[in-house]
Nucleic acid binder design. Structure first.
Length: 331
DNA sequence: GGGCCCGCAGGG
DNA sequence: CCCTGCGGGCCC
């Protein structure tokens, strides 16, 4: 017998999922790589078998020198003594040497301080401003970082903690980190919950100085972050989306944070949130822009999801050259 | 595992 | 300066 909370949660999830699936997502799941002169040849023998659903597989043999990303499979991502990198691994025994080889790129920094971007530059030496709409130059869809700090250093999502990066004409970017249980992520569309309404400071007698906390009051669109996303729904500016490992869907990365490309906010509303006080939350529906690389999927623990990916047995998109020429920025 | 408390980015 | 915020390291 489900508790009232569980019932409310499941109702919300069911309703949200139906909304998302009604958006016609199938057309977004077929990415046809641009035909280049060099590659416009039927792949007779598949030279390389895709090792993982990861998007950031290297383009090692690209003679044009335009290679952007590379998977440093042999890099030992732990420190010499297997230092724990973050709370996500607390208590877990993970054999990175064997596991990581499949998917993860090189970990750039294990320290919160001096976060480096993918070029070894620090946040203060960003090459691009994060305050722009659309893709960040040279950062491919599928790019992966170990931490929010590293993602910030690459200008894709600037805040280290906040899920929304607000701008005048809408949000520049959001991060999906599974902060709200009734958010639904169908990959090519998802629902998102705003911020605010949390008591971060505690009381005078018991000050907290927290960064996140349970809901304790209503969220409104007066909040900067929430207003920005509402504006996004009006201006249709593209929003960069980063998925984090806390995202409880098959579309979340197993570790770290991954850039999943551009989305549009297509709806914004408020509703009674899934919190004990029944406080209002701001909700949004996001839909992915077409012509972007497919999103990697994973198998959730203890969940009988279909095996990974959507293309086991389909060969059309087997080519790894999924260039990032999706919807352009600005409009 | 959970609690604490910090730095940092960005806006007012 | 102040405030906020779906991190993360450290200690227990």
């Amino acid at each position: 017998m489900p508790t009232p909370y569980e019932k409310a949660r499941d109702d919300n999830i069911k309703r949200n999922r139906e909304t998302l699936l009604a958006l016609g997502l199938d057309e977004l799941k077929t990415y046809i790589p641009p035909k280049t002169a060099k590659k416009d040849v039927a792949p007779t023998a598949k030279s390389r078998k895709r090792k993982s659903p990861s998007l950031q597989d290297s383009k090692e043999e690209d003679e044009s020198g335009a290679k952007v990303l590379r998977t440093h499979a042999t890099q030992d991502i732990t420190n010499a003594s297997g230092v724990r990198r973050s709370a996500r691994n607390a208590g877990k025994t993970v054999d990175y040497k064997s596991e990581v080889i499949k998917t993860l790129p090189e970990v750039i920094s294990t320290a919160a301080k001096n976060a480096q971007n993918s070029e070894g530059k620090k946040t203060s030496e960003r090459r691009h401003t994060p305050k722009q709409y659309g893709h960040i130059p040279d950062v491919e869809v599928g790019h992966w970082w170990p931490t929010r700090e590293a993602c910030s250093a690459d200008s894709v999502h600037a805040p280290w903690v906040a899920g929304i990066a607000p701008g005048k004409d809408g949000a520049y970017s959001v991060c999906l980190s599974g902060g709200y249980e009734d958010d639904v992520d169908e990959g090519y569309a998802f629902t998102y919950t705003g911020s605010g309404g949390r008591d971060l400071k505690g009381t005078k007698i018991a000050p907290k100085n927290l960064r996140t906390a349970p809901q304790s009051s209503d969220q409104t669109f007066d909040n900067n972050f929430n207003r920005a996303l509402k504006v996004s729904a009006d201006t249709n500016k593209p929003v960069r989306v980063v998925r984090g490992f806390k995202n409880r869907s098959e579309y979340g990365p197993e570790e770290g944070y991954r850039y999943d490309g551009l989305y549009q906010v297509i709806n914004a509303w408020t509703e009674r949130g899934l919190n004990p006080g029944g406080y209002l939350v701001c909700k949004y529906t996001f839909r992915r822009l077409p012509n972007q690389p497919l999103i990697p999927t994973r198998v959730l623990d203890g969940s009988p999801l279909a095996s990974e990916g959507s293309s086991e047995g389909e060969d059309e998109n087997d080519d790894e050259d999924q260039d990032r020429d999706a919807a352009s920025s600005e409009g």
